Amino acid sequence: MSSALRSAVPASFPVPTLTGAARRLRALPSLHVGAAALIVLVGGLLLAIATTSDPLWWQLHFSQLGIFGDLSSAFFNSTLKVSGMIVVVFAFCVRRDVARLGRGPVRRGAATVACICLNVVGVNLALVGCIPLNTDKDLHDRVAGSMVLGFLALLISAPIMFNRLGKRMAISTGIATVWLVISIALFVTATINLALFETISCTAMFAWSGMFTHVLASAAAKATVRAEGAAVRHLAPRRIGRMVSSRGARTTT
């Protein structure tokens, strides 16, 4: 090969790897990921509602928007799939944040429990979009119910796993749990329809998740301050000892 051809051929081609993407994903703030899931979900639902051919869908449930095979149904089902995948990413971000707190503010296994419960929510949310109501109603209902149960399991386990995160966490968890249980009871007794129940449960889910990530961020900041203070207290005696020894050496000389 001539020197001209060698100079024209690059020595190495940049090969894309997953490490860079993994690092960026690990650095994503949980609150931003949760907000992205909420924005995608609300925006997609509004588009589906605005373009639906059934103006009475709200008398049944939100899943009614995804059964017609038109643009509205495409908006609805695609929104659930994308939102579910973002919630899965959110689950791993929460696991990262909880694991960073250590054993002090949370109990052992709290990161795994939170990740599993949120993954159940995210995966089943995506499956609701993959299985429209008119294709398999029983499976669709089971998937939707599993999503609610996953979030309820997280609420029930939170007072045990995250009981050291302060009163705000405890009060918010109690309110969300009571809110969700009451809505389930009202739906079972046919006091409210499924559309209203879905609205209530999703509101509780995202409101509690936003509070949870904010509490985790505050706890992480406090843990960082405590660690820095401990490091300063640990290094201060050494510095004082060095200063005293250096002064003693000067006086002897």
Rank of each mutant, 00 (worst) to 15 (best):
L60C: 04
P14L: 07
G210Q: 03
I131E: 15
A74E: 11
A74K: 14
L80H: 00
F62D: 01
L155N: 05
A114G: 02
G150D: 03
V215A: 09
H61E: 08
F90T: 02
A111H: 14
T224L: 13
V225A: 00
V120T: 15
L118N: 06
S53I: 05
G145V: 09
L101C: 04
L47R: 11
N119G: 14
L139Q: 11
L155A: 06
T177L: 15
D141A: 06
V232D: 14
W179R: 12
L216Q: 01
V225Q: 01
L152A: 13
A37Y: 14
F162I: 04
F75I: 05
R103G: 05
L235W: 10
L28F: 09
F206L: 10
T191L: 09
Q59N: 06
K222I: 06
A144V: 02
L101N: 04
I67D: 12
T135M: 07
A126D: 06
C93Y: 10
V42N: 00
A48Y: 07
F206V: 10
L47Q: 10
W208Y: 12
T251C: 05
M205C: 12
S78I: 03
R103V: 01
A221F: 07
F212D: 01
L28H: 11
A126Y: 04
A36L: 00
I67C: 08
T252C: 03
R103I: 00
V89G: 07
N77R: 12
S78W: 08
R26M: 11
N119I: 05
L165M: 14
T224Q: 13
V40F: 00
L165H: 13
